[in-house]
Write a protein that binds this DNA or RNA. Structure first.
Lengths: 309, 309
DNA sequence: TCAACTGTTTGTCCAAGACAAAATGAAAAC
DNA sequence: GTTTTCATTTTGTCTTGGACAAACAGTTGA
């Protein structure tokens, strides 16, 4: 609890939970079982995590998402972890993506050089050229991945990541607002669970749905479950769309979604998208798991086929 | 951990945390100290909260936001709690504000009725009529206060407050983007400290500065101090603007600002605005405290007077 | 090839204690 | 009369070590 005044790069357990998405309980039990992380202690005996341990934890989380198990990787060296990530990267066949990134390289460069003006005009140009849907799918989505990747590897710092998020938000919100399609069907309510801060996933979903004539209402991030339920019913929505970033604990996502499913009337469809729920369709009966942005459009067509007005 | 199969209206502690926003630790310590909530237990001894206890917890949370203290209200009866809410409601009616609200009443009504389309067009209309600066000062700012008030009194729920924030954000971001003034002076970096989630203050500041020809770059909310410093220096900014909502602990704001002042070179001006720092100018040497939105413009003119290019 | 069984791994929950930060209220100083 | 300072509660978050169900991995048998 006590904050250290000397070194700014040591985080308490709550901050690490925020930064890594690993719960306090998990952090403590890993320390007990695997000997890592091994934080320092402040004068009160409270844990203080050095920055490099937090970085390693993020790396570990990433590997967990690829199917590795904690006992195998928590006590491994950072070098081994990087090697594992690289191995997985090879396997996933990102060659196609590498090509696409060619076109994105200038945008990434602008970001790294803090040239926000150029970044904005570059984004606008791409938007004009591709149209909203293609812009989101072919530019923003891979750019997100590249930025996330860069952040993991330390090429991109917090301020740059924030700047990126802000500018993309500006562009997307303006573009969505310009469509101004009211009265369309279905009516879609978009939001995230309370611990999810990332909004780009929501905006990207909205940006792919609005051009299809759907009527979207976004509540932004961090809406408590009970309020999602209330808003969905009161607002007479057909679909509730939830977004989960890669940082969101998959377990929490699944539990929350099952609870939400149980609390909503059957005629309201639930869509769940994002890295944390990818491939979890089997564990989420009654919920449509959206595998990627193009799948959003597919899900919309499915809904319309099943609900001829 | 074990989920009950019979009654769906009993939640485990993680679900209650999600629904109420009260941490597991807090729920346990309240039970120990005040005897409420008093959940049932499943076969494994894990807590199972009946729905009515969760409802009461949400009521309690609302009262906490009005300034009540847990020891006074946690063990009170639901009737007493309702009475307290009513009492607070009576007290809060400010006459001057009532007048202003006359013009804003339609907008508030749209929000309460979840008529997001009408809300958006109402906001756009006001923006067109008043221009960006006056729109922010005369419409958005008092509307914010009215929404905050309504939230305290329970007239406006979480979902409505989120909806409001989203729509205002859309309008402001579009309007700011439309100005597209690059290369102006001074260069202003806008953001908030890590625990501050509220973004409207930042956007309102940006919306008053951009029409004056300043060049604003926003990092959004929740930027760590070290990264603010880095971005300000690397980006060659003249001014760093911080926003603090009424919910931000004043003490933390002051401490953080003093630290930031010490870590930034003297030639970079710091502006601090928002309810949490209002009237704290005396305790913040070397920092320009912005008392309200009109003062933002005044501060800009001051800076220009002191820095003839 | 798939289903059922078995042992291991893993995340979440529990209890009761501790302590710093925040809030309160009273006394002192401007 | 207003603000500052100090002492006393209150309150949220952190601690340890133990427990157990759900998820997983591996093997056996149909």
């Amino acid at each position: 609890m006590k904050t250290t005044s000397n070194t700014e790069t040591e985080l308490n357990i709550a901050a690490v939970e925020r930064d890594t998405g690993l719960s306090k309980d998990t952090l403590r039990v890993w320390e007990r079982r695997y000997g890592f992380p091994k934080p320092k202690r402040d004068s009160n005996g409270d844990r203080l995590y050095p920055q490099h341990q937090v970085d390693k934890l993020r790396l570990i989380r990433r590997l967990l998402d690829t199917g590795q198990r904690p006992s195998r990787i928590v006590s491994a060296t950072p070098e081994d972890l990087s090697a594992m990530l690289d191995a997985h990267r090879e396997q996933a066949g990102t060659s196609e993506q590498q090509v696409r990134e060619q076109a994105l390289l200038p945008l990434l460069q602008y970001l790294r050089l803090h040239r926000s003006n150029e970044l904005v005009s570059g984004l606008h140009q791409a938007l004009m050229k591709q149209g909203l849907q293609r812009f989101v799918i072919e530019t923003i989505s891979p750019l997100n991945e590249a930025v996330g990747e860069g952040w993991m590897q330390g090429d991109i710092d917090v301020a740059e990541e924030h700047l990126y998020t802000e500018q993309v938000q500006n562009v997307l919100r303006s573009a969505i607002g310009a469509h101004a399609a009211s009265g369309g069907h279905p009516r879609v309510l978009l939001t995230t669970f309370p611990d999810e801060h990332h909004i780009l996933g929501l905006l990207m979903a909205e940006a792919t749905l609005v051009p299809e004539g759907a009527s979207c209402v976004s509540l932004g991030t961090r809406t408590p479950l009970a309020d999602i339920r209330g808003a969905a019913i009161d607002g007479n929505f057909d679909i509730v769309g939830l977004s989960f970033s890669i940082a969101y604990p998959a377990r929490q996502a699944i539990e929350g979604l099952i609870e939400l499913r149980a609390s909503l009337p059957e005629h309201i469809t639930i869509w769940a998208g994002g890295a944390a729920v990818k491939g979890k369709q089997r564990r989420l009966p009654g919920i449509r798991v959206i595998s990627d942005l193009t799948d959003t459009v597919a899900a919309l067509h499915e809904w319309r086929a099943a609900h001829p007005s």
